[in-house]
Design a protein around this nucleic acid. Structure first.
Length: 386
RNA sequence: GGGCAGGUGGCGGAGCGGUCAAUCGCACUUGGCUGUAAACCAAGCAGCCUCUGGCUUUCGGGGGUUCGAAUCCCUCCCUGCCCA
């Protein structure tokens, strides 16, 4: 994999990242397709949104459809007929989010399946095996995040386990390098380590250093946006980034609101994912541009100096939209907005619980996020002094 | 005309002498969702106020019993089913 920085501005960088399924332009946002689908979206939607990549989940795809189906169907690319890159989360987040359903040991994690309760023994090696079967272009190490708030002792353990498991992931891949997954066209996938360290800057640094010593194709910062303040989050990013090699991509996992993404980009982060645009869309909350704004007619979503994102969140289920016939977002070029669907109609669809409501809103929100990243990248490219 | 069963907050439906401004569900209103067990969760939902409390008016209408009534009695109105 090659990662090449082509422009920098205000601490932000624009780069290209080559994968088995094409070259990614950073910074980018990954819509989340946990179970092999971005909820409510079809491939035809991706064609208009033009997202470069999807994120899928190891734990969820292991439960269904399972390893055998993935192997026989050409991995997730084959199953979905999605030919662009896929990044897979390792299942590490489920150790946190499904905490009530698992037991953790230094060597493995036992999950009780949230589907049928059966026991699943998850190891770093199994996570890598599943990600290979998925045909993941960018694999994540199986990590351990202790939750928030966490004591220093708990966080130290989280870092310790994450480093130990990262070594096992790397070792497993070195063993299997002679037998690359056919679902990746016979090529190796890339592997990212995940920095933990909770809200302790020194542990963040330590975690980053330990992972860099092992050596990965890129580095993620995990365990953030889970209850700490945005300022604490930025502080943790600032602690970790200097320890990470400048010639490798950086990925802030699970973040976040548009302004948080912008801030992180300026702190040197290249990759993002978050459930907010999709989940909020399903719940009737959409990201829009203030109404005077028109693309190409002055006024920008992202300030030319990257100082702010000009947007607002509105709740379409609100009674104020009952007869609001204006387009959802006259600035937006997504298929929902260019089709002229009004806020009143969307509000109606939500109130009668029509699936179309969630589909239209999801298209819009995902487009908003993907376009936000395109705008940020354009500013970096334009203003770069590199 | 006779018999039986009922009339409770926007709707459905509990309660059947005090702990009832009235369980619960739906609808409605407003919030929140950050590597997705999430088309979910939370709060509010008679009115007013000096709002971790107080006051006023509510359970078809009217009257009564009682210290106290959505709950018991009388009467009227209305609804459903059965009989004529």
């Amino acid at each position: 994999m090659s990662f090449k920085v082509s422009a920098t501005y205000q601490g932000a960088r624009a780069a290209s990242l080559a994968t088995n399924h094409g070259i990614l332009q950073t910074p980018f946002f990954m819509p989340i397709a946990t179970r092999g689908a971005v909820k409510h979206l079809a491939n035809s939607d991706f064609a208009t949104i033009q997202n470069q990549i999807l994120l899928a989940n190891t734990y969820h795809l292991y439960l269904r459809p399972g390893l055998e189906v993935l192997k026989k169907c050409g991995g997730l690319h084959g199953l979905m007929n999605w030919q662009k890159p896929i990044l897979t989360d390792s299942g590490g987040f489920q150790v946190f989010s499904l905490a009530a359903l698992r037991k953790i040991t230094p060597d493995y994690v036992i999950f009780n399946s949230h589907i049928d309760g059966r026991e699943l023994k998850f190891t770093p090696e199994l996570s890598m095996e599943i990600q290979a079967a998925i045909g993941s272009d960018i694999q994540m190490c199986f990590d351990y995040f202790s939750g928030y708030p966490a004591t220093r002792k708990e966080t130290e353990y989280s870092v310790k386990l994450t480093t130990a498991w990262a070594k096992r992931c790397k070792y497993y891949l070195s063993l299997s390098s002679g037998h690359p997954s056919p679902n990746r066209g016979g090529k190796e996938g890339e592997v990212f380590g995940i920095v933990q360290g909770g809200t302790f800057p020194d542990l963040r640094k330590q975690s980053a250093q330990e992972l860099v010593n092992i050596g990965f194709n890129g580095y993620a910062i995990g365990g953030l946006a889970v209850g700490e303040t945005p300022q604490e989050m930025y502080t943790m990013i600032e602690a970790a980034v200097p320890e990470l090699p400048a010639d490798k991509p950086r990925y802030l996992m699970g973040v976040g609101q548009p302004e948080q993404i912008l801030e992180a980009v300026k702190l040197g982060v290249d990759m993002f994912d978050c459930v907010l645009p999709t989940r909020n869309a399903r719940h009737g909350q959409v990201y829009i541009h203030p109404s005077p704004l028109r693309r190409g007619e002055g006024g920008e979503v992202v300030a030319p100096d990257l100082s702010m994102v000009n947007y607002q969140k509105i709740n379409l289920t609100g009674s104020v939209y009952a007869t609001d016939l204006q387009p959802l977002d006259s600035y937006c070029q997504c298929s929902t907005c260019t089709s002229g669907y009004s806020r009143a109609y969307l509000r109606h669809l939500f109130s009668v619980n029509e699936a179309l409501a969630q589909r239209l809103a999801t298209v819009h929100n995902v487009y908003f996020y993907v376009q936000l990243m395109r705008d940020i990248r354009a500013i970096i490219m334009k203003s770069s002094h590199l």
